[in-house]
Design a protein around this nucleic acid. Structure first.
Lengths: 256, 256
DNA sequence: GAGTGGTCTAGACCACGCG
DNA sequence: GCGTGGTCTAGACCACTCA
């Protein structure tokens, strides 16, 4: 077995830190150091087990952690191999508006522009896969941070039950929450489509931007377990205030 | 133990399908059916093991699959619980340009506008964390699908070695590939920042859009294992041709 | 056929949550 | 104190790969 071990890389079987976790970190270090290069095989599981005096199941647990984060892949009958980092996919993430704003120490505010019962027009009926004229709950609102408007939201929920609109639900008027209250099933899938666009006149008025301002348009559809749409919304994000950031690759503690 | 079993939900211990996988699917079905509701506890592991006549380790393997996809969470000393789907985060993904275009059956084309050795100005030096005037490789190109320009790319790589520019690397001029050839380490992290913006005059000319056209601007930085930037690029995507789609929630085979 | 990873067992001990 | 999940063991058998 190729020597991979530095002096400090030993396993303390009586530590409070699980053995599999210690081994995961040792192997991760070997890979990031370059002692194990992409494409190269890890030592066989039984060898690692023997070398550290631990069970093969524990070795497998350690390796499966690395497989989980994409640093290692495994081929039955051949061995475990160091993966090549995939950096060419985009994965953009934008977290919950309220959490994000508050994490930044800003004051978040949601202003209700209107709550109505409406009948579905052709577009909405298509989006929600219901008949035209189906009764829907319609909510318009503006989300602000430190009194600066950032997002303009329009959302619709199929409104089969004659439930009253409660104050509590207007405190968390996220589409998935609305859908879980006013639908028959709780939502399990959310689909979002993001586009770059130019603010319409109405949108630039509400968001306080100039005409022709760049915006993100995000359409969201929420589905129930039967893949039936139960809510649909369109949100306009100010392009001068929103960025989507994504990190991809092997795990590193943090980046400056 | 609460009865969760339908007649058809039994485990065939002699099937080629792994026991843990059969159990995962049974539990998943219980959750999607509503027999196990969000917040509710799964039966204790030892009970499931006893009921199906299998080992507790196998039960744990099945449950860990569900934990992996976010349908179940576990609390030490208390039990395993059905999770509530989180639908309020955005996760947008856009895959590799060439793969995506070819998957759609279109003809992808990359046109090189220029390859130069340049010296870093103030902005670039800051982005790559190097001294001003450091030698860099600079590449400009346009990516097209069916002869329609879609993306305009500008990328810079720290160019310490005096390696010649090979034809092969211009066939895959992705930033991470360039960086791995011209840097001292292979890249392990890629950071991307996406913004909505309006095409500049130069950009609209190259992409063949009108002035004031909406575009996505994607800045990409590639880092090595030491978290040092080794490449930086700025890509302009036509807003009228690009959408980012994201699904989030519990796994379902497919959606229409 | 020798070596590899994939699955599975029947135990064991521990730390944690709760009454 | 009891029930829970978290970890770990020392085996076992299988399917796969490759020579």
């Amino acid at each position: 077995m190729k020597s991979l071990t530095h002096q400090e890389e030993i396993i303390d079987k009586y530590s409070v830190i699980p053995i599999y976790y210690q081994l995961t970190k040792i192997l991760e270090k070997c890979i990031l150091d370059g002692r194990l290069k992409p494409g190269e095989a890890l030592p066989p599981e039984h060898e690692i087990a023997e070398k550290y005096g631990i069970s093969r199941m524990t070795v497998r647990r350690a390796i499966s952690e690395l497989i989980g984060v994409g640093m290692v892949y495994s081929q039955k009958g051949k061995g475990n191999f160091v993966a090549r980092p995939r950096l060419d996919d985009f994965v953009f993430e934008l977290v919950n508006f309220y959490e994000e704003i508050q994490k930044r120490g800003m004051k978040s505010n949601a202003k209700l522009l209107g709550v109505k019962i409406v009948r579905a027009d052709e577009l909405l009926a298509k989006k929600l896969e219901v008949e035209i004229n189906t009764t829907c709950l319609y909510i318009r609102m503006v989300l602000s941070a430190d009194d600066e408007p950032l997002v303009y939201e329009n959302k619709y929920v199929v409104y089969s039950k004659q439930k009253p609109i409660l104050e509590t639900e207007l405190k968390d008027p996220s589409l998935s929450n609305l859908a879980s209250i006013h639908g028959d099933h709780f939502p399990i899938i959310s689909k979002r489509v993001l586009q770059a666009s130019i603010a319409t006149e109405e949108e630039s008025l509400i968001l306080g931007t100039g005409l022709n301002a760049p915006v993100f348009v995000v359409e969201q559809t929420v589905y129930d377990t039967g893949k039936k749409p139960i809510g649909w919304g369109k949100s306009i994000y100010r392009g001068d205030r929103y960025k989507l950031t994504s990190y991809i690759g092997w795990p590193v503690d943090d980046i400056g």
